[in-house]
């Protein structure tokens, strides 16, 4: 969804995704710049990160449902303490409530991520956001979010 798919906000030294069998499909979709959530095909309960079992009906069949990439800011923090010593400070860790409208997903689902290209004064819980993609390699892209102007 970025106009410029080579745009970068964080250094290569950021920690890499660490995955297992159940979280891999989400990151594989990210590599295609598709924001998804794991939906139980039995009861439509939706969860992130991916799990081997639905925590509502204990079903074990899932689909990665593509979402529209929109959401709202649920909470945030401005981190002033260096992590990799190469990133711009402060950086913003946020929780986004993802919009599941137009999908069979039964419940909204939240994702931890970052807001980029924003100043601290712009932060307000409930503000609309949309996904942007930061591509690290052919296999790894990480979803970040921007405030909708």
């Amino acid at each position: 969804m970025n106009a410029d798919s080579n745009q970068r906000w964080f250094p290569n030294s950021m920690p890499a995704p660490m995955v297992d069998h159940h979280t891999l499909p989400w990151w594989e979709a990210c590599a295609q710049h598709k924001l998804t959530a794991q939906r139980c095909t039995n009861c439509n309960h939706t969860q992130l990160p991916g799990s081997p079992i639905c925590s509502e009906c204990r079903g074990t069949d899932f689909e990665m449902t593509e979402l529209n990439g929109k959401g709202t800011l649920y909470t945030y923090t401005a981190v002033h303490q260096p992590l990799t010593y190469e990133e711009k400070l402060p950086f913003f860790i946020v929780v986004i409530e993802l919009d599941v409208s137009g999908t069979p997903c039964k419940n909204p689902v939240r994702l931890m991520s970052n807001i980029v290209d924003a100043e601290e004064e712009e932060f307000e819980i409930g503000k609309p956001v949309e996904v942007v993609w930061e591509t690290f390699s052919e296999f790894v892209s990480v979803p970040r979010f921007k405030f909708v102007k």
């Binding site: 890499a16 990160p49 860790i93 990480v142």
Partner: peptide, 8 residues
């Protein structure tokens, strides 16, 4: 591993 790429 799911949250560290975001700096958490």
């Amino acid at each position: 591993g799911h949250v560290m790429p975001f700096g958490m």
